[in-house]
Amino acid sequence: MLAMNFKTAPQTFLTPTNYEMSARLSVYFIAIAALLEYIVIFDDFITFKQYDYCAFTIIAAMAFLRSLVKGIDKWFIIFFIAIAYPILVDFRSTANHSFLALYLLAPLALFPSNIGSETFSSYVRRSLGIVMIAAATQKLISGNFLNGHFLKYLASGGAINEMPLSFLCFGQSTIECDALVYISILSVVWQYAIGILLLINCTHILAFLAELIFVLGVGFVTDEMNFQAINVAALIIAFRVKAPPIAFIGIAALLTIDFFGIESTLEGWLQ
């Protein structure tokens, strides 16, 4: 099926694909982002004799490869169950974006043929809206974010990807930096705004760009590219974007950077 799709694939990296193709590729990237979380620590599973995790990761990888060749069909449920097992069994240490990937893929596990439907798009849109509103509310009530304390804490951590935050202080000490307080407030307001836009089903290009810029900006500073890859792929589905191949090359790059860690990638470039 994939081979068939590539025959009708666009001519350049910037020509939009059809929506069905974009949705399918986005689902592949959400699936691979979830799978990579387990593949990168596969050695640990062997070291710690977690053979059930090994088995489920191998089954998930094989089911994923099958869906690449045959398309997302009723067998996709095997991938879903295999990836859900380690996430749910080890729920105490599972990353939040693995739970998000599970939420996003759940309807497809039972209804794979509806991948291009408006029902699935609006489900993804609402789920992302919930994430944004919840994350903004948590920042609001935490008592450490609106006053800039958390960004100051991040900026004084010294990692290369956190340097843009200290750069915004223009030579001021990060602990006394007012700019970080304003950025904290702006990011909460921004996150609420895009959350509301998503929940009211706004699919305007400006809403898409506002969300994309937020996701990529936050992802860069916090070194959470796996989360951002899931978010960008989900945005393509949520806004029913006929994304050009270059967009998927970008998502693949995000996952590659996440694989090595943004700090070590930047250090490699800067040397």
Binding site: N96, Q138, S142, F150, Y153
Partner: peptide, 20 residues
């Protein structure tokens, strides 16, 4: 989490990056 009873970074909530 607000009552201090759950890890803000885990368990499928979205309180990461609000406190260490």
């Amino acid at each position: 989490h607000h009552k201090g009873a759950l890890n803000p970074w885990k368990l499928g909530g979205y309180a990461m990056y609000t406190k260490p």
